[in-house]
Design a protein around this nucleic acid. Structure first.
Lengths: 156, 156
DNA sequence: CTTAAATAGTTTAAACTTAAACTAATATGA
DNA sequence: TCATATTAGTTTAAGTTTAAACTATTTAAG
């Protein structure tokens, strides 16, 4: 009894790989969030600042795209940052539906303090792999991210 | 100007690898959550059921450990599942501080419907990698998770 | 032009999440 | 014993997250 078919085994292997992947992602996330220690910023607030810092002013749906979250979510997080004078909303002239979110001087100061620590936190955690291993990891993850996806079956 | 030191490049590579890892983890998570379609279960509620299904009754701090969340969080999620008759609390006799959480019959029925879809969703997404690639991915992630960590530097 | 559809953002309700303060039960140690 | 510390769980406050319903603006179709 309790016979394991090849399919069971295959699924188990996939589950194991997923569990490791998940834990690794969480673990790196923890390293990245260390940079927020004592800065009174939540990690999604940091996410907004980081995207604005790298990409410049964005309107809210672009922020949502970059952060993979809903519009309602962006509204709330930007509200909270705006109350503290860290970002600023500016309605677009050409399309008055859009609202661009800018870093204020305060916000820019804050994120430029934190960002280098954020980067080095990730780099330090990632340094458990060699450069070569990092490359392999990146390539495998890119494959999982759909770059090579030939749809098979119906997925339902 | 704008000279990139080797350290800049190294950090950038690490960031790139992290970004891919993060997206892959998110992407697999989406595949896993497809099993919840139409079941009126949030993914953390599913998390509780899945752990109880695999490991049997657990007390709440053990649930929190398994789900990497705080005790207050467990209280709320178990509350919501209990209201719907999906789990049941049972105070422990030997140590009356502990409360064991059990699946009810309803809960067991629900999770045993969902679990196979959950597994096959992950397996299907993971099938973009060969078995060999999955093994490599798992090994690299385990390294990131500290299994091979020979401590270097102070980590602070 | 005028209606209909699409888009950008807000609001609401329900749930999740954390940290911190709290209660109750247990363990430790003078 | 009795005071102290630890542990398990709850509660609270603040913030995040989603889906759905909503407003305002723009675009497309007739």
């Amino acid at each position: 009894m309790k016979m394991r078919t090849p399919n069971h085994r295959k699924n188990q292997k996939a589950l194991d790989a997923f569990a490791s992947l998940w834990r690794a992602s969480e673990s790196l996330g923890v390293s990245a969030r260390r940079s927020l220690k004592g800065k009174d910023l939540t990690s999604c607030q940091f996410g907004v600042l980081e995207v604005l810092y790298r990409l410049g002013p964005l309107c809210q749906y672009e922020l949502g795209d970059n952060l993979s979250c809903t519009g309602g979510n962006v509204t709330v997080v930007v509200d909270n940052l705006e109350k503290r004078g860290i970002v600023r909303r500016e309605r677009c002239c050409e399309d008055r539906r859009q609202i661009y979110v800018h870093l204020t001087k305060t916000g820019r100061g804050l994120i430029s303090q934190i960002f280098p620590k954020h980067v080095s936190g990730i780099a330090q955690a990632m340094a458990q792999l060699t450069r070569q291993e990092q490359k392999i990891l990146e390539r495998l993850c890119q494959k999982l991210n759909g770059r090579n996806a030939k749809p098979k079956g119906n997925g339902a």
